[in-house]
Design a protein around this nucleic acid. Structure first.
Length: 470
DNA sequence: CCTTTAATTAAACGG
DNA sequence: CCGTTTCCATTAAAGG
């Protein structure tokens, strides 16, 4: 699509600007170090009251180039990530200047990064590590990580003030609950490559339950958590990396790297060793984690793939949504050298940003920039009804993606008036909007807690997370 | 055709 | 409280 080329140009331009900025930042980084480290402590203290944040942004010295403070990007004062898709790597002066003030690894480097190196908070994260590992060590009989499928009462859903927090700075692109009923913990990824953890069960514990790391140099596009190995958290990045956090080893390992952006990632329930991700301008790649090889790659779209999802019941069925204006359902039963068989193509007027199967697998919800949410149903997904829904989030907000709740009844999607619209598939209309004075910004990305009915996390473009609960 | 510009938009920050 | 800054979306329209 022509839009893609504009984006490419834009990216290139921004990269150059960023590079200049990095150079300037390096020149006077020493004078800023004290300020940066001093204020990084305050960040956590104020994390739950974003409005009163005392953080000071580093004042820009020149109005021409776009400048962002390292702290504003959630980075340690000495770490910096550079991407070089379009030009030669910045050698010489910049590299040397940086090496004078840092011995830390850049998140761009193709090696594992330890959690402590990636941590952006001064406080110890031992409580977080212990929490995750202790739930992992529960005996199988005590474990409660089964996915629930129940009807919920929308009226019971509320947003308590203590379930609001700023977990990371800036724009959140993805949010995910740990798939365990023994935990109320969300993980988010933001535009700067930060991965933030928020333990909502941190009552009586030290700190506020919020921990932040910087394992990626760019936007985090997806988060996967293995239901049966909760200590393994996989993240993908626009800068072409997939990292796998092993909480036991306390390292963000590097699973895959490419020059192309990774916009989406998913996993089949029956195969935890394969990652499916959308790479570049329409490629779906299947990566075998154990062999470290790409088992398949298919050119399925003409533009970026925004979501990949698997039918929870018919496990060979995969749905993709793309900025080429289509959403597709694929049959993965016969994948040899050729592409999977296309079972269904939905064509929309504009980019499609999500296509998710319902919990029973019999419905497919699509969200498109053409201001419609579509629901496919029927034996071959031949029936479709559309709901008008304003999806123009503009430049500063992540796009809306309608997600399913705990059964096939409802789809949850953000709206531009700081509410969560709820669409009933039974009534085929918008039935209610979740609103709360505690929701002071627009929630764009959602995740329903797989084991706790009524618990829904909404994430904003300002780094906040709202956890609604019954 | 391809390339480039402008306009749009919400929220955090700071004076 | 209000003006400034954000700048990895997206599209339409203008320009070559």
């Amino acid at each position: 699509m022509t839009g893609e080329k504009v984006t490419e140009y834009e990216r290139k331009r921004i990269e150059n600007i960023k590079r200049n900025e990095e150079l300037l930042a390096s020149l006077n980084i020493k004078s800023k170090l004290s300020d940066l480290s001093a204020s990084s402590k305050r960040h956590r203290v104020q994390a739950k009251s974003y409005k009163l944040s005392p953080e000071k942004k580093l004042k820009s010295e020149t109005p021409v180039v776009i400048r962002r403070s390292l702290r504003n990007q959630g980075m340690k004062p000495d770490s910096a990530g550079l991407k070089d898709d379009f030009t030669e790597p910045p050698k010489s002066s910049l590299t040397n200047l940086k090496s004078q003030v840092t011995s830390n690894k850049s998140p761009r480097e193709l090696v594992p990064i330890s959690m402590s190196d990636a941590s952006t908070c001064s406080q110890s994260d031992a409580v977080l590590v212990n929490k995750i590992l202790s739930v992992c060590e529960l005996s199988d009989t005590k474990k409660a990580n089964g996915k629930v499928r129940v009807a919920i009462d929308l009226k019971s859903m509320e947003l308590e003030p203590e379930n609001v927090a700023r977990v990371v700075p800036n724009r959140i692109l993805c949010v995910k609950f740990f798939p365990s009923a023994d935990m109320k913990m969300v993980v988010v990824g933001n535009k700067f490559g930060n991965v933030g953890f928020w333990n909502l069960d941190s009552e009586g514990e030290e700190g506020d339950g919020i921990y932040m790391y910087h394992p990626h140099p760019g936007p985090v596009s997806a988060i996967l958590i293995q239901p049966f190995s909760l200590n393994k958290i996989i993240t993908s990045c626009y800068d072409g990396q997939i990292r796998s956090l092993d909480v036991e080893k306390q390292t963000f390992g590097l699973s895959y790297t490419t020059d192309h952006a990774i916009f989406s990632m998913s996993q089949r329930l029956d195969d935890v060793n394969s990652l499916y991700f959308g790479e570049g301008h329409g490629l779906v790649r299947v990566w075998d984690e154990r062999s470290g090889k790409s088992s398949f790659s298919w050119e399925l779209h003409d533009s970026r793939i925004n979501t990949i999802d698997f039918n929870p019941v018919n496990i060979n069925m995969m749905a993709t949504s793309s900025s080429d204006g289509t959403a597709c359902i694929w049959d993965l039963r016969k994948v040899g050298k050729s592409k999977p068989k296309s079972l269904k193509v939905i064509t929309r007027k504009r980019a499609v940003h999500a296509a998710y199967f319902s919990p029973s697998g019999s419905l497919l919800a699509t969200t498109s920039l053409d201001d419609k949410i579509g629901v496919l149903s029927g034996a071959n997904y031949d029936d479709e009804f559309m709901i008008n829904h304003y999806n123009q989030t503009g430049r500063w907000l992540s796009t809306f993606k309608g997600v399913w709740g705990w059964d096939d009844s409802y789809i949850f999607v953000g709206n531009m008036k700081r509410g969560v619209d709820v669409i009933s598939t039974e009534e085929r209309r918008l039935v209610t909007t979740l609103e709360s004075p505690n929701m002071t910004a627009i929630p764009c990305r959602f995740d329903a807690h797989p084991c706790k009915p009524g618990m829904l996390a909404g994430a904003t473009s300002g780094g906040q997370v709202y956890v609604w609960s019954s």
